[in-house]
Nucleic acid binder design. Structure first.
Lengths: 343, 343
DNA sequence: CATTTTTTGATGACCGTGCCTCATTTCTTG
DNA sequence: CAAGAAATGAGGCACGGTCATCAAAAAATG
């Protein structure tokens, strides 16, 4: 089975190589009728451009920048590690992936980082977007300068970003609500909610989803008002300690954001055989261990590796101007129990 | 930042291009000392071969064969569709993926299909391996002929296959057991188990996992003896109808294999507001709808797209003789509730 | 030291496409 | 119909490897 090349297409269409090239690369100076002839020949022969030859011929590389929060957050560390790993492995495929740590709590700093990016130094940007309005504006300006931007993990729906790589956090919250509702007995009970900050869009979304399910389908359960712990392990630990002593009849805890470590130690502290249902987010060494030990009952997660790969594919597609396969790029909401932990 | 080429390596190592080529492609006729010099230069410059140039230069394509059961099984149809889709999209990357439907219940036919494959027509095989001993033997012979084989979805651990692409079915069964145990109230209850056939390794594994969890952690629940329904929708429907009338106190159903459609219609038939917890496998239009409608409570699934892509990557790595990244190739056990359905 | 064998160097022909230039043909338009 | 514009053809170079061949140099051998 021989490979179909542009030569074959040219012959089949009865035109020259140059014309086929013009059509395939949408260069100007070809009559509509000729374009059609070539298109049909391509169709007829089922011509598939050879990615290797094409990649070799165009000297340009895709220069992608990934801006990911630093800070002591196991999930972000995973994300960073995955990004760096792919930077290595994709370098043979003409992909230059730069990973830049950002301070997610300093909007101006992030804005500054985005502001210096430019078509001359970078062909695409993926950013874990902090929820500041100035960041939105910086994304918009970057887009205006012709650099495609995708948001990663945390979205900025109102911005001009081309795409969001991440999960539907409302659905994730609903999933948490469902699990808690089903795991608890059909009796009155109190559920504690702990977030980093409801100012963060993803936390707010998860809260909303969880509330929907519990209120509508498990009305015997009471949602305590959300405590905000800034995703800091110590603060969260204190918070949970206080909650546990204030509400001896607490039946479930939903940790909406990061900082599971704090929650885990608080529960550890309160005795071994706790009946409390504890659901949180993201698979980290700590949440894995907590699942194994029975301290956590379920973890809702998103796969950082998938997200990085998806972001790279999407940015590449945006650079090439080809349409992307929406449903290959959908990131799943993973549910982990003790039993289905990977590895 | 310029690309490091073999020219640079040659210069840095103080040898000629030809020698670098000999070393990189492990061709004979190079002294050990020289090999070492080149290796170090590669290391020092962090040379990454350009996959595009390499792909273009070697005319050979990877010819892969995927043998997937036909028959009215929504999951296998998905798997086939994914394989065909990738056959299309990868053809520009010098991948020729042939998808051949097989009759999973006819061991001899499958054996015959494997027997005609050969290094001259195919560089790698992925097969959804039916559990017949003659199939195992055929896999071994194919391996002997130098064609790497991976098993897909359903494994043959005793065979010479190089790799298994699929989930750990014991863990999947444990996950099912856990979900059922947690979803049911802490009262005595009966759980019906329906399999295609316990002769199928994956079904037996799932059964084992489920039984472990229920027996050890939910001793108040009684597992009824497994009914085998050959993964046929009608038979399964009859089975479930009979079970429901024989055991009015049935509290849960675990469908270990395919044929969820039959189980669903049986439950539909028995009235709308059933309290029965129903857990099954694989995400199909039918199980999706059943989850939405509240007929199913959870679906345990594996992503056919991931599995196909993983199989392709693994076979390619085997052809190239490069080591594979074990943990990128691990297939997750997905848990779906109504709330976290994709799309 | 001469001879054979092993290693290394030099070179060139691809692989299929991108991209550019220059000449030639065809179409428009006054 | 002539002149100018638009469309097309012809061809070549580059990309970074793979693979093969032949000659030259170095090492091993007697």
């Amino acid at each position: 089975m021989k490979r179909v090349t542009i030569h074959d297409v040219a012959e089949a269409a009865g035109v020259s190589l140059a014309t086929v090239d013009r059509v395939l690369n949408t260069r100007p100076g070809v009559r509509k009728a000729t374009i059609e002839k070539v298109r049909q020949a391509v169709e007829r022969l089922n011509y598939q451009p050879d990615v290797f030859a094409a990649g070799l011929a165009k000297k340009s590389a895709y220069r992608l920048h990934f801006l990911i929060p630093n800070g002591p957050n196991a999930f972000m560390e995973d994300l960073t590690r995955e990004a760096k790993a792919h930077a290595q492995s994709m370098s043979g495929a003409r992909m230059q992936v730069h990973v830049e740590p950002i301070d997610a709590f300093d909007g101006h700093r992030v804005t500054g980082t985005l502001a210096v990016l430019d078509k001359s130094v970078c062909d695409g940007v993926a950013v874990v977007a902090p929820a500041f309005p100035e960041v939105r504006a910086a994304i918009d300006r970057l887009q205006d300068r012709g650099v495609p931007v995708v948001t990663l993990v945390s979205d900025h729906p109102a911005s001009a970003r081309q795409h969001f790589v991440g999960i539907n956090n409302v659905a994730a919250g609903r999933t948490a609500g469902r699990l808690i509702g089903r795991f608890l007995p059909k009796e009155p009970g109190k559920i504690a909610l702990i977030a980093g900050s409801l100012g963060l869009r993803d936390h707010a979304d998860r809260y909303k989803g969880c509330r929907e399910v519990i209120d509508n389908e498990y009305p015997h359960l009471e949602l305590l008002k959300v405590r905000e712990g800034r995703d800091d392990n110590r603060r969260k630990e204190d918070l949970v300690r206080k909650l546990l002593s204030e509400h001896p009849d607490l039946t479930a805890i939903y940790n909406i954001g990061a900082g599971n470590r704090g929650v885990i130690s608080a529960i550890h502290g309160c005795g071994p055989a706790s009946d409390i249902v504890f659901v949180g987010h993201e698979l980290t060494p700590y949440t894995r261990e907590a699942l194994r030990d029975g301290i956590m009952d379920a973890v809702i997660a998103q796969d950082p590796g998938h997200e990085i790969r998806s972001a790279i594919r999407v940015l590449k597609a945006l650079c090439d101007g080809v349409p992307l396969l929406e449903d290959q790029e959908r990131i799943g909401i993973d549910v982990f129990l003790k039993e289905n932990l990977p590895e």
